[in-house]
Design a protein around this nucleic acid. Structure first.
Length: 922
RNA sequence: GCCCGGAUGGUGAAAUCGGUAAACACUGCGGACUUAAAAUCCGCCGCCGCAAGGCUUACGGGUUCAAGUCCCGUUCCGGGCACCA
């Protein structure tokens, strides 16, 4: 027994996991006799090792799964791998290993890590998106979309590295240069496939209202992203012609949501690729050079928005449709050809960006909206200039009209001339899915010299990706694989060439939830089982996926519905957006200008007592910061020396005569500190849970990560405090054995608890446990698991102090410890499993019913109310639990502290908040 | 730049509908046990003050009998911005 009293997580966890494996405890099937609960955590990218962000995500999912299982639901919790993607290619470049091998090795390793955490996963449904049996269906549905006109081919703008002759991801562009070559990146237009998500914009927006289980902020972000706005599309007429042919029928089209300010237009700006810009550039070398310059630089919105706005006049003029005035056309680097018509009207008086542009190039600014009698000044932009609450001025017949009336009147006048109309505009753009990359799902298209782009027939699917390529950074290796490229045209049979672009990996993750809920191998994308399990009852994942992944999945579901595959319109009924786990990032600059990211586990930090700043070094053996000593403090110079046993590090700080503090580094591998960021492969700041599990066990690891913060809150990772979780579980284990050896034996053959009048101390203890249970159940309902963990700790604190002598007390303790074990079991399933069995509560805690508080245990006679005088706490009054308001007021006024702080003034008012407090106002 | 969040003791955090700010832990300090150490157990721990008491939820205003919580403004931190996933 001595040995049994020792908490040994490794043994306990191995035994519990073996039990679950042997009994297929988490393998499930459709079962109409039970309510179903589909609990899905976002599947991981197999980057190599789990990090704490994964542990947090999957522990939250597991808590919900196990809780619902005990509540009687048929629970499905699957797991799989988001296995295509860029990091595998980067690893290939670095290690010369094929992405397939790297990926499958990582999956094997991470699966074993997940298993060691004891998650209640139905592994029979595991999938990896890089397998042909999965991605076949990406290809199949893509072909359906082509048939329905949802997929189409058009041009896309990409980052082009002119040295490597390859397309770069945004992540691979650093300060406008290629990550490996350092070459200036160019924008380049190439053909690619798009999915017309904009056709579903209205539905994607309006269905947000039905997603009551989604956080408001996510719905708000999606609504803003979709960005429905009503405005006016109208044209400026002109007679500019190329070779006698009017350019764009002599109309320069623009879109505006501020038609009320059209009278204030003083210029127009067009994109560098706009026909008018190209026309003007023919006879204007300076403009041609400017257009060339615009082709460099980023395609990212964040860069577009923050870059210096530049422009050049074309010398061309168009006619204002309402005033007939001539308006000059400029080329602006901030206007994108791919948005709308590639041109914008300039109203500098009422648009902040136009205001700055006009000031920079001395263009006229004409105020056409006034707000009250606020003075308009050209000196600086003011917030109200952009307001829609004003009325039109200097606008001829539109003077005095408010925003809506002005828009209506102006739109009507433009429509009458045939040069404008009201139009709904979306911010949402179509989804470009073509990637010029190897490690992804091949797009099932064949290019034939005579027939053009021909879809691969269904019976030739899947188009299988060869798994032995090793990318070297110089473009897609599929272009060098004749065995992949060569094929016959499905249409005419002549030799043809296979498409080498692969799909965006967001395609893979847009429908995996439906595949889990289906029988694999069936020659269908999804089968009828999907209609049983779907929709997902609880989806859990990082807030960083709030827009793209979730929006694409919603879109893909609606397409599957429209193709007749599924009956539901939305994939995820309830969404828990888990806060990210952040860790510090560190890098050293490499000679080629790129950054080498160093994992926090190999970093030592030191905060200088002199400058207050924190510095970081790569750990190299024997560094010991406890040896920090102030060696000199003479005059205004202080020196701090930190010694390391390997002598590699040596620096000192000094304060000079002006009081300026500085750090002088003599030697050592110093690294740059670069802020807290979400744990990721690319910044190499993931913290592997393995060491924690090895030292303390999975239960401690799970308990700690749940305990340490609210699930939705972002978390700066630190394992300080994990000892506390471990101590707690050790005490739970120890108490279980005290219960078995010392407390239980006092229970008689006849049970006495039911209906018994308990002594006050025992009743108080029992009430405390049941109150904590009530709180825990409430918190589980709102998915606040950290306070559930606190509640279990409070329960144990109470149990250890509870009266334990006599049969009645022993029965109460047995009941309360049983409650504790069950509340704990979703958090720490292994220890709960072991104690539940060993203490004879039952065979399997998974089959136990979730506990509910007993009303009889909660009842109490007297309660304590806080006493306030003028809103400040002055004491407490005890009253009967059912005391009426006037009795409470009387008790409050009779309190000595009330008299003291009322200072003889009469009470003007007494506020009684039932069950809480009483406040005397005087 | 735009959109969405967050900020509470030395630290992680809690406070359910506007009603006792700091529960539960970590660290630290003091003590018990021990030949000693580890483990364990007990006590203390927001700031000022001898005390009575006063002050305190990033900063500045406001609403209210009462504000961490609601409103307005600001700062800093994190996420997203369409090819990281």
């Amino acid at each position: 027994m001595q040995d049994k009293q020792q908490y040994k997580p490794a043994d306990i966890e191995r035994a519990a996991q073996q039990h679950w494996d042997a009994t297929h405890a988490f393998r499930v099937q459709a079962d109409a006799s039970k309510p179903k609960y589909y609990c899905l955590s976002m599947f991981p990218y197999p980057s190599g090792k789990l990090h704490m962000g994964h542990v947090r995500n999957y522990t939250i999912g597991d808590v919900l799964s196990r809780f619902h299982k005990m509540k009687g639901f048929n629970v499905l919790q699957p797991m799989g791998w988001d296995a295509f993607g860029l990091p595998a290619e980067n690893a290939a470049i670095k290690n010369k290993v094929p992405p397939a091998k790297w990926t499958y090795d990582n999956i094997a390793y991470m699966k074993q890590q997940l298993k060691s955490l004891g998650f209640a996963i139905d592994w029979s449904r595991e999938l990896a998106t890089c397998t042909p049996e999965y991605y076949k269906w990406n290809q199949w549905l893509f072909l359906r979309m082509l048939e329905k006109g949802i997929a189409e081919r058009k041009t896309q703008v990409v980052n082009w590295d002119p040295v490597d002759q390859t397309v770069l991801a945004n992540e691979q562009v650093i300060d406008g240069r290629g990550w490996r070559t350092g070459a200036l990146v160019e924008k380049r237009e190439i053909p690619g496939y798009y999915l017309k998500i904009t056709d579903y914009a209205d539905e994607l927006l309006s269905d947000l209202d039905e997603l009551q289980g989604w956080p408001e902020r996510v719905k708000l972000m999606q609504a803003n992203w979709i960005g429905k706005s009503t405005g006016v599309r109208f044209a400026f007429k002109h007679d500019i012609a190329d070779d006698g042919q009017l350019i764009s029928d002599g109309k320069l089209w623009v879109f505006t949501t501020r038609a009320d300010t059209i009278m204030g237009v003083t210029f127009c700006a067009v994109a560098a690729e706009h026909p008018l810009a190209l026309h003007a550039a023919r006879s204007n070398p300076e403009l041609a050079a400017f257009i060339e310059k615009c082709k460099h630089g980023s395609v990212m919105e964040a860069d577009m928005a923050t870059m210096e706005k530049e422009g050049l006049p074309t010398g061309l003029f168009v006619t204002h449709p309402l005033t007939g005035k001539q308006v000059e056309v400029w080329v602006g680097n901030y206007v994108l050809m791919s948005y709308g018509d590639g041109a914008v009207m300039g109203v500098p008086a009422h648009d902040e960006r136009d205001f700055a542009f006009a000031k920079k190039y001395a263009l006229p600014i004409e105020q056409v909206v006034a707000l009250g009698d606020k003075p308009y000044s050209l000196d600086a932009w003011q917030e109200w200039y952009g307001s829609k609450d004003g009325v039109c001025i200097n606008s001829g017949k539109y003077d005095g009209l408010g925003y809506e009336a002005a828009v209506d009147a102006i739109a009507a006048d433009l429509a009458a001339q045939g040069v404008g109309e009201k139009k709904v505009q979306w911010r949402l753009r179509d989804w470009g899915i073509s990637r010029q990359r190897y490690w992804g799902c091949p797009i099932p298209i064949i290019h034939c010299d005579s027939c053009g782009s021909v879809p691969v027939p269904d019976d030739q699917l899947p188009v299988v990706l060869p798994e032995d390529c090793v990318p070297d950074g110089s473009g897609n290796p599929l272009n060098k694989r004749d065995d992949f490229l060569a094929c016959a045209c499905p249409s005419c049979g002549k030799p043809a060439r296979r498409e080498t672009d692969t799909m965006d990996t967001f395609v893979d993750s847009s429908w995996y939830y439906a595949r889990y809920a289906t029988k694999f191998g069936a020659d269908k994308m999804v089968d009828d089982e999907t209609n049983y399990w779907m929709t997902v009852d609880q989806y859990i994942g990082g807030i960083e996926h709030a827009i793209l992944h979730l929006l694409y999945s919603r879109f893909w579901t609606k397409v599957m519905r429209d193709v007749g595959l599924v009956k539901y319109s939305e994939p995820f009924a309830n969404l828990l957006t888990q806060g990210m786990v952040l860790a510090p990032t560190y890098f050293v600059d490499k000679e080629d200008g790129s950054k080498d990211w160093i994992n926090p586990s190999s970093i030592t930090e030191y905060t200088s007592p002199v400058t207050g700043q924190t510095y970081a070094w790569i750990k190299d053996g024997g560094l010991d910061f406890s040896e920090t000593t102030l060696v000199e403090g003479r005059g205004n110079t202080s020196k701090v020396r930190i010694s390391g046993t390997n002598g590699a590090l040596n620096w000192f700080e000094e304060t000079d005569k002006q009081g300026k503090k500085s750090l002088v580094i003599v030697s050592g591998n110093q690294v740059q500190i670069s802020g807290m960021e979400k744990m990721s492969k690319s910044k190499n700041n993931g913290v592997d849970p393995e060491a924690l599990i090895a030292t303390y066990g999975a239960d401690t690891c799970r308990f700690f990560i749940i305990f340490t913060a609210h699930p939705e809150q972002s978390l700066e990772w630190s394992d300080a405090g994990v000892e506390g979780a471990y101590r707690f579980l050790r005490r739970v284990w120890g108490f279980g054995h005290v219960l078995a050896t010392e407390i239980r034996p006092q229970i008689g053959a006849e049970r006495q608890l039911a209906g018994a009048k308990l002594p006050e101390a025992l009743a108080g203890f029992r009430r405390e446990i049941h109150l904590l249970l009530k709180q825990a159940n409430y918190d589980l309902g709102k998915q606040q698991f950290n306070t559930v963990a606190s509640a279990t700790m409070k329960m144990l604190n109470a149990l250890e102090k509870a009266p334990r002598d006599g049969a009645l007390a022993a029965e109460v303790i047995e009941e309360c410890f049983g409650i504790l074990l069950r509340v704990l079991s979703p958090l720490t399933p292994h220890i709960s499993h072991a104690l539940w069995r060993e203490l004879g509560y039952g065979d399997d805690i998974l089959q136990a019913a979730w506990p509910e508080p007993l009303e009889a245990a909660l009842a109490q006679d007297e309660i304590e109310l806080m006493l306030q005088v003028n809103g400040k706490l002055r004491g407490a009054v005890r009253v009967a639990a059912d005391a009426p308001k006037d009795a409470i007021e009387a008790a409050a006024l009779a309190h000595e502290m009330a008299a003291k702080f009322m200072e003889g003034k009469p009470a003007k008012k007494v506020v009684v908040v039932p069950g809480r407090l009483v406040n005397i106002v005087c």
